[in-house]
């Protein structure tokens, strides 16, 4: 599948693609463990964050668009929700640093292209699509300001 992804997302996709079965689970786990803590300035501001309703576990996202039009994605999810954390971490790492226009161009098929549907039920992957959709919407809102 050619999705014409930005380099970081393309690299993540290739990493998943090179693995099979349980190793993909391990890679998703690594992403889950890498999800960074929220920076100090956002830690006490839950009102800024948007709940991703498509995910059963409580995951919250917040998008910052800088003066240079660069996007920064923040996400927080409970430790006991590693799959959700993994999805959030992939998007936070893959999208942060892109311009608003580049984020909006990311294919909505990206979550489905990671080859996870055989090992994680499709409905969980919907959660990641939900995150991506909400990130894009926040990018649009915040680029207009």
């Amino acid at each position: 599948m050619s999705l014409n992804l930005p380099p970081k997302l393309a690299e993540i996709r290739e990493d998943f693609d090179a693995l099979s079965g349980n190793d993909r689970i391990q890679l998703l786990l690594e992403f889950a463990l890498e999800l960074p803590d929220l920076p100090e300035r956002y830690r006490d501001h839950p009102e800024l964050f948007e709940r991703v309703e498509e995910c059963q576990s409580p995951v919250y996202i917040f998008v910052e668009v800088g003066a240079d039009a660069k996007v920064h994605v923040f996400a927080t999810a409970p430790e006991q929700a590693p799959t959700t954390r993994g999805f959030a971490s992939i998007l936070a790492q893959g999208l942060t640093g892109l311009t608003a226009a580049e984020v909006l161009e990311v294919s909505d098929d990206f979550p489905g292209s990671l080859g996870l549907s055989a090992i994680i039920s499709p409905l969980r992957l919907r959660g990641m699509s939900g995150m991506l959709r909400r990130i894009k919407r926040q990018v649009i809102e915040k680029s207009d300001q």
Partner: peptide, 20 residues
């Protein structure tokens, strides 16, 4: 959540994945 077992489980427990 199919990753939960990996972040820590009861000693000696095996994983069984309802989906796969």
């Amino acid at each position: 959540d199919v990753l939960l077992y990996e972040i820590g489980h009861i000693p000696g427990a095996h994983k069984i994945d309802w989906h796969t």
